[in-house]
């Protein structure tokens, strides 16, 4: 498996370099958190909003931008296309589950992005030297764990929507709704703290929070140890949930695919 992955990764890296201009453009399309930052920044001129000062917004949204870049997922467009055009049948002939090829290309993309993002993050730090995070060994470990979980959740949930293309033609539209939910309740439009209490209570347990917001919250220093514990348990639950859902949908989908062809 390791050998297969290194081969897949090598090829994926080659492709990424070939499409570098395209990737840079894709990276630029992730500016929405910065737009929201600009809006909240000027709204907070008159004083903190729900405990968020201008500097808090800068800290929150810069990290949100980074998390969004590093958890970015596009697998549904490929999956949907390959299912509808029948290209998937070629991949099914290979003695390896197609998901690994998609994972490899996403990992290669992340490697490429890191290479660009690290210098940019340093520049951002120079421009806003006052940004502040609660960095301890525990929060840092949790942050990276939550970052990985966020990517897994975004990838697997999108993959599940992609599998729906075996049955319906509007899989991408459904995913769009899911994506909109993430922008709203995943803390992009506003930090979850700024939502009305009734909404926030529910949002805290929905998967959207763990697809973007949670890693940022962990190092924001606003969560109590209880919050961290409960949040981590909910996060693990959702990862497990989507793993199971993926397996179930995939086996059903393959059966459908081989029964009716493409």
């Amino acid at each position: 498996m390791l050998r297969k992955y290194s081969a897949l990764l090598r090829r994926a890296m080659g492709l990424m370099l070939e499409y570098r201009a395209s990737i840079v453009i894709w990276m630029l399309t992730g500016v929405m958190p910065l737009v929201m930052l600009a809006v909240w920044f000027s709204l907070a001129e008159g004083g903190p909003i729900a405990g968020y000062s201008q500097n808090d917004f800068v800290s929150y949204y810069l990290l949100m931008t980074l998390v969004r870049q590093l958890t970015n997922v596009w697998v549904i467009w490929e999956l949907d296309y390959e299912i509808r055009h029948g290209d998937l049948s070629i991949k099914l002939l290979h003695p390896i589950n197609p998901i690994h090829e998609y994972i490899a290309s996403h990992l290669a993309d992340k490697a490429f992005r890191l290479w660009i993002l690290v210098p940019l993050a340093l520049v951002a730090w120079l421009i806003f030297p006052t940004i502040h995070y609660d960095v301890t060994p525990i929060t840092l470990t949790l942050f990276f764990g939550a970052l990985a979980a966020a990517w897994i959740l975004r990838f697997l949930s999108q993959y599940c929507f992609g599998i729906l293309a075996f049955w319906i033609s509007q899989a991408i539209t459904l995913n769009e709704i899911w994506f909109a939910g993430m922008l709203m309740l995943g803390g992009v439009v506003a930090p979850l703290d700024l939502f009305p209490d009734q909404v926030r209570v529910i949002a805290n347990y929905l998967p959207f929070r763990f697809m973007l917001s949670f890693p940022v919250e962990i190092v924001s220093g606003r969560l109590t140890p209880t919050d961290l514990l409960v949040g981590s348990i909910a996060m693990i639950f959702w990862v497990a949930f989507f793993v199971v859902l993926y397996r179930w949908l995939w086996s059903r989908g393959i059966r459908q695919f081989s029964a009716f062809g493409a």
């Binding site: 890296m13 080659g14 570098r20």
Partner: peptide, 10 residues
């Protein structure tokens, strides 16, 4: 060709 080649032409 290859990854090294890609990097070089990059």
């Amino acid at each position: 060709s290859g990854l090294a080649g890609s990097l070089k032409s990059f």
